[in-house]
C-alpha cells in the first residue's frame, strides 16, 4: 500500500471518530452515541459517493458495495413481508395464516393461489441442472399475460386515441380574409398564432411519423419530410432537457443542506 493511502485512511478515520464523539456528546435522546454514529455514517457515505466525481476510490467502492448488499436484502425483506406474508399467505389456509399471525381472508377460490406457488417453485428449478427447462413455464405465463394486456391497451391509447387528438381544425374561427387581417396580432391567443400552432402540430406529427417509417427509402419529398420530423424531435428533446435542469440542481441543494445542517450544524 502507498504511504498516502494509509495517511488518508488514518485522517478520515480520525475525522469519523471525532464527528462521532462530538455528535454523541451534543445530541440529546435515549441513545446519543448510536444516533451520533448513524448521522456520521450517513455523512461519511454521502461524501464517499460524491468523491466518485473526482475519481474511483476505495471509499466509493466501500459505499457502493455496502449499498448493493443492504438494498438487495431490504428489497427481499420488504417483498417477503408485503407480498408473501401480506398477500399470499392470508389466502392459502387459515392454519398457515395463524402460524404467520396474519388474518385469513376467506374466499371461494383461494385454492387458485397455489398455482403461483407452483410457478414460483418451477422458477427455482433453474438452480437444478436437469429441471431448468421447467423454469420457462412461469416466464411464459408472465410474458403472455402482459403481452396480451399491452396489445389492446396500447392499441387503444397510442393508436386510436392519438388519431382523434391529432385532428385539429387548421382554420380557427374563420370569418373571411377581411376579418382575419383586421384582427391580426401576435398574442398567444390570437387567431394567427393559434392557426400557426395548429399547423405546426399537424405537420410536426405527420413528419415525426414519417421519420419513423422503416420500409421506404428516405429520399425525395419523403426524405425532406423525415428531416423536418427529426428536427422537431430534436427541438423537443432540447426543450425537455432544459426543463429538467433546475429540478436536478435542487436535488443537489438538498444533499448539501443535509451535510451542513444535520451533520455539521453550520446552518439552521
Amino acid at each position: 500500500m502507498k504511504k498516502t493511502t494509509i495517511i488518508t485512511f488514518a485522517v478520515i478515520s480520525a475525522l469519523f471518530l471525532v464527528s462521532w464523539i462530538a455528535k454523541g456528546m451534543f445530541t440529546e435522546g435515549s441513545s446519543p452515541f448510536l444516533d451520533g454514529f448513524l448521522v456520521t455514517l450517513a455523512a461519511f457515505l454521502t461524501l464517499a459517493i460524491m468523491s466518485f466525481l473526482y475519481k474511483d476510490n476505495p471509499y466509493y467502492k466501500f459505499a457502493e458495495h455496502l449499498f448493493v448488499g443492504v438494498s438487495a436484502a431490504y428489497a427481499m425483506c420488504l417483498g417477503f413481508w408485503s407480498t408473501i406474508v401480506g398477500n399470499l399467505i392470508p389466502r392459502l389456509s387459515s392454519g398457515i395464516s395463524e402460524f404467520f399471525k396474519v388474518s385469513y381472508i376467506e374466499g371461494d377460490y383461494n385454492f387458485i393461489y397455489f398455482i403461483p406457488i407452483i410457478f414460483g417453485i418451477l422458477l427455482l428449478m433453474r438452480l437444478s441442472p436437469r429441471g431448468g427447462w421447467l423454469s420457462r413455464w412461469p416466464l411464459a405465463f408472465i410474458v403472455g399475460t402482459t403481452a396480451g394486456l399491452n396489445f389492446v391497451r396500447y392499441l387503444r391509447s397510442d393508436f386510436i386515441n392519438q388519431v382523434s387528438s391529432t385532428i385539429v381544425p387548421l382554420m380557427i374561427d374563420w370569418q373571411g380574409f377581411g376579418h382575419f387581417f383586421s384582427n391580426l396580432n401576435f398574442s398567444a391567443t390570437g387567431q394567427l398564432v393559434m392557426m400557426f400552432s395548429n399547423l405546426v402540430i399537424f405537420i410536426g406529427v405527420t413528419c415525426g411519423i414519417i421519420y419513423f417509417y422503416f420500409s421506404k427509402e428516405h429520399t425525395g419529398w419523403f426524405g425532406r419530410a423525415s428531416k423536418i420530423g427529426i428536427w422537431i424531435l430534436m427541438i423537443t428533446f432540447g426543450a425537455s432537457f432544459g426543463y429538467t435542469v433546475m429540478g436536478r440542481i435542487s436535488l443537489l441543494v438538498g444533499r448539501i443542506t443535509f451535510l451542513f445542517r444535520d451533520w455539521l450544524e453550520i446552518i439552521s
Binding site: 391529432t166 381544425p169 399537424f202 405527420t206 411519423i209 419513423f212 421506404k216
Partner: peptide, 19 residues
Amino acid sequence: DYAKAAIILLAVIGVVLAQ
C-alpha cells in the same frame, strides 16, 4: 408502417372534415 400510413391518412381526412 402501414398502420402509420393509416394514421396519417385518417388525420388528414379528419383535419379537412374538422372544418
